Simulated assay, not measured.
Amino acid sequence: MKLSARLEALVAMVGAPYPHIWDCCCDHGYLGYQLLETYPDSVIHFVDVVPSLVAQVDQLLTGTTLPPDRWQTHCVDLKTLILPDKRQRYLMIIAGVGGDLMVEMVTQLLRNNKHQSLDFLLCPIRQLYKLRTELNQLGLGLVDEAIVKDGRHFYELIYVSTGSERKISSVGDMWDLTNPVHREYLALNIEHYERMGAQVVNPAHPALQAYRKMLRC
């Protein structure tokens, strides 16, 4: 199964061995299926709130030779999920949703699973600055991060953990401005916040200031 550059990067960033990896908002299950092949010692959980999608993934996996104890499907609102074993370390992968919704999901997962060791691998499609700021406020720490270009679109991968004390930068510390992809993405972010600033009384948005500052580093 050929994955997009974004999904390939998510699979590659899973660094530590996890007993359980949760592919949240799993859609058609492509990411989770690749995780099954790449991490044979992990149980992969496919989670989505849409019953038809979960049924489709369940049918797909049932038709394979994969052992049934290697995967589980769950039709559930992620914000209500209570993880089954507090002794386990879990990786929660959330991709393809906006930063605002992602913050809600992470906040509720932390609230519903207190004192649980949780890692999050996040790939939002909007509101990166706000998401990063609020992840810090939730007490999470950075594990890894990256910029990925997939076709005409850019994505940030943000890997955070309840067990890390490394501060999460509001604009990221993964930039390499000798890389033309990174420079193109930075220019797009600056243009975005300049357009936003033209619509308000005070254009000095902290995100715009932070992105512009990187050009002077």
Rank of each mutant, 00 (worst) to 15 (best):
K130Y: 14
V160T: 05
E156G: 01
M174F: 10
S170M: 09
Q116M: 13
F154I: 03
L109R: 09
S170L: 10
T64P: 03
T80G: 06
H74R: 15
L122Q: 06
D144W: 09
T162A: 02
I93M: 12
V160C: 04
Y90T: 02
K149W: 05
E145K: 06
D150F: 02
L83M: 08
E165N: 13
L135A: 01
D77M: 06
D173F: 09
G151K: 07
P68T: 14
W71M: 04
K167W: 11
W175K: 01
D85P: 07
V148A: 00
T65L: 14
L188T: 07
L91H: 11
A95N: 05
L131D: 04
Y193M: 01
L186W: 08
R111Y: 13
Y155M: 02
R152C: 02
T80Y: 09
Y90N: 02
P180M: 04
L122G: 00
M102D: 07
L121G: 03
R183S: 15
T107K: 15
D173K: 11
G98S: 10
H192L: 11
M92K: 04
Q72A: 12
G141E: 01
Q108F: 08
H192W: 13
P180Y: 08
H182V: 10
L128I: 10
K114T: 12
Y155R: 04
V171F: 04
F120V: 00
W175A: 07
A95M: 05
M102R: 05
D176K: 08
N189P: 08
I190V: 11
L78Y: 10
E134D: 12
Y129M: 00
E156A: 01
L78S: 11
L138R: 01
L83S: 00
S117M: 13
R152E: 13
P84H: 08
Y159N: 01
D144P: 02
I168N: 04
I82Q: 15
E156C: 06
H74I: 14
E194W: 11
D69E: 15
I82M: 13
E184D: 14
L91S: 00
L128H: 14
G98R: 09
G172Q: 05
C123G: 01
I93N: 04
N112M: 11
L101N: 12
L131C: 01
N189Y: 12
L135N: 02
S164E: 01
H115R: 13
A95C: 09
R70G: 09
S161H: 04
R87E: 15
M102I: 05
L142W: 07
E156N: 06
P68M: 09
P180E: 09
S161L: 06
T80L: 07
S164M: 01
I125D: 04
N189G: 10
L157V: 07
Y155K: 03
F120I: 03
R111N: 15
Q72H: 15
M92R: 04
W175L: 03
L128E: 12
I93D: 09
L186A: 06
M92P: 08
V76S: 05
V76T: 14
F120R: 02
M174V: 07
H115D: 15
K86M: 14
K79V: 12
H192Q: 15
M102V: 03
R89Q: 14
K114C: 07
R87T: 15
Y193C: 08
K79T: 15
A187C: 03
T80A: 10
N112F: 09
T73L: 05
R166E: 14
G141C: 03
M174C: 12
P124R: 07
L101W: 08
V76G: 02
I190Q: 07
L122K: 05
E156S: 06
L138M: 11
